[in-house]
Design a protein around this nucleic acid. Structure first.
Length: 144
DNA sequence: GTTCTGACA
DNA sequence: TGTCAGCA
């Protein structure tokens, strides 16, 4: 039996995963609802997680702690219909994606601002916006 | 004893 | 997200 298979064996019930990830059962189920993980089920419909699932959850946790919401996490980690479709993503790739997403969002935010300015050309209040200056290095600011 | 789904603050 | 209900 090779590692690939061993890592995908559904072994742990949610209680164990809670301890392994420091996430609450509520959170773990919530992330599943949003297709961030795909745990197997027993005949009794109880979730069983593999090592891969646990790793995946740790990635999710990391991004949550960075302030990203579900949409942002999906953008970085990607989605799949089944656990077997989940492709590992290196830290380097991840960092790269975060950077790209960050730039895209910055651009979008910029366009939105321009649009607003154009729409409100006759309104005097631009002071508020300038206060909303963006931190180019903070992705979470856009994915909240 | 544990987990599951649904629902509400 | 936390938490509670009512089951399996």
């Amino acid at each position: 039996m090779n590692d690939q298979i061993r890592r995908n064996l559904a072994l742990f019930p949610i209680g164990i995963v809670q301890k392994l990830t420091d996430l609450t059962a509520r959170q773990i189920r919530y992330y599943e609802q949003h297709q961030l993980v795909y745990p197997a089920r027993t005949e009794g419909n109880q979730r069983l997680y593999s090592f891969n699932d646990v790793e995946r959850l740790l990635e999710v946790k990391k991004l949550i702690e960075q302030g990203l919401n579900i949409a942002g996490i999906k953008t970085v980690l990607g989605t799949a219909k089944t656990a077997s479709e989940l492709l590992p993503i290196s830290e380097k790739e991840q960092a790269k994606m975060v950077k790209e997403v960050k730039r895209d969002l910055s651009d979008r935010e910029l366009r939105d601002l321009l649009k607003k300015e154009i729409l409100h050309t006759h309104k005097p209040g631009l002071k508020g916006m300038q206060h909303n200056s963006f931190n180019a290095g903070d992705l979470s600011r856009f994915f909240h």
